[in-house]
């Protein structure tokens, strides 16, 4: 690791200003992904601007929204009483990610900014268009067991690794951003992007834009929610496939539903069409299976991840069943 310079800032304004002065600089908060990437030589900022002390840690109710500051720690959000009561899907997804030690360090903003865990991205002597545009995609014909089945391109088949973001995508969260050109609100599902021809860009933030927090609008998903994460070991592993499922049930009828998948695409994979289809249907395994088939439209696998074409719909059915059974 190069011996970068280090600055500490205490306001978002100072953070944005400091970053704009130097295009080799980078913000650091929890550091759980950035330090990893710097140790691997994947990222080499010459200056780190420490934003971990920004006053953006609050988790609070604001009108008909829950507001979570960008610097709130993953564990604090997961265990927050308001979140557990009003947004339990988010709490479940957070608890499924990483380990408690990492959740104690990682921030909400940082979680959103984490890079893919694709091994070709991580190893600088292997080809990767995300790390080094034009060098090729090592995973396309290589070790792609963990890789995308939706929305990939021949430039990149990496997946977004977060659990938290899958829930936030399902919950219609809004990302609050401050930047040199002013403030913006980005719908969560528009925050991360598909790789296309520019896989080096994970999301739609402009350089210099800082995530200030997120907002989750009130919703009825307080009971029938489930986050199912299928992985190679029982804990502390990235998802092969994960499903965030939330339902608003009235008797045996689905008034409304939310569904998103992780481990299947370059971004949290929201299944809006399936949600619409589910509306008004009665709860049954057959309905869930049909919904799962609908969800798989356009899926494409790359060899070692062919199993996801079966696992993903199965996981959707299981997540919906489990959500239904919550009491």
């Amino acid at each position: 690791m190069i011996n970068f310079e280090y600055l500490r800032v205490s306001t978002p304004k100072a953070a944005i200003e400091a970053l704009s002065r130097d295009n080799t600089s980078q913000w650091i908060a929890g550091g759980t992904n950035l330090i990893d990437l710097m140790k691997k030589g994947v990222m080499a900022p010459q200056k780190l601007i420490d934003i971990s002390n920004l006053p953006l840690k609050e988790i609070k109710k604001e009108g008909n929204k829950v507001h979570i500051g960008a610097m709130a720690l993953n564990s604090d959000v997961a265990e927050n009483e308001l979140i557990q009561r009003e947004q339990p899907l988010l709490s479940l997804a957070l608890a499924a990610g990483a380990s408690q030690q990492l959740r104690n360090m990682a921030t909400v903003g940082g979680n959103m900014m984490q890079r893919t865990r694709c091994p070709y991205f991580y190893n600088t002597d292997l080809p990767c268009n995300k790390r080094q545009p034009g060098s090729g995609c090592g995973a396309l014909k290589g070790f792609n067991r963990m890789h995308a089945i939706f929305g990939a391109s021949d430039k990149c088949i990496a997946v977004h690794p977060s659990d938290m973001c899958i829930a936030l995508a399902a919950l219609d969260a809004m990302v609050l951003v401050n930047g040199p050109k002013g403030d913006r609100r980005i719908p969560f599902t528009d925050f991360h992007r598909l790789p296309g021809d520019t896989p080096q860009k994970d999301n739609t933030l402009e350089r210099g834009e800082l995530i200030i927090g997120i907002e989750i609008p009130d919703n009825p998903y307080r009971k029938n929610v489930h986050y199912l994460k299928v992985r190679d070991r029982s804990s502390y592993a990235f998802a092969l496939v994960s499903v965030a499922a939330a339902m608003d049930l009235e008797g045996g009828t689905i008034k409304d539903a939310r569904l998103a998948m992780g481990g299947v695409a370059h971004k949290p994979w929201r299944l809006s069409e399936v949600e619409t289809w589910l509306k008004g249907k009665s709860v049954s395994d057959a309905v869930f299976r049909e919904a799962a088939q609908l969800a798989m439209r356009g899926a494409k696998a790359y060899g070692q991840n062919n199993f996801k074409l079966k696992l993903a719909p199965n996981a959707i059915v299981e997540a919906l069943k489990a959500a239904t059974q919550k009491t």
Binding site: Y6, K39, M105
Partner: peptide, 29 residues
């Protein structure tokens, strides 16, 4: 592991468990 993948480096910072391998010393001011 030096990469936040094993937990051997767990310490308490301000009473909470964190991974010291993924923490910059300067950020513990």
């Amino acid at each position: 592991c030096d990469h936040g993948q094993c937990g051997a480096c767990t310490v308490h910072v301000n009473g909470r468990r964190v991974l010291s391998c993924m923490s910059l010393a300067v950020m513990q001011e």
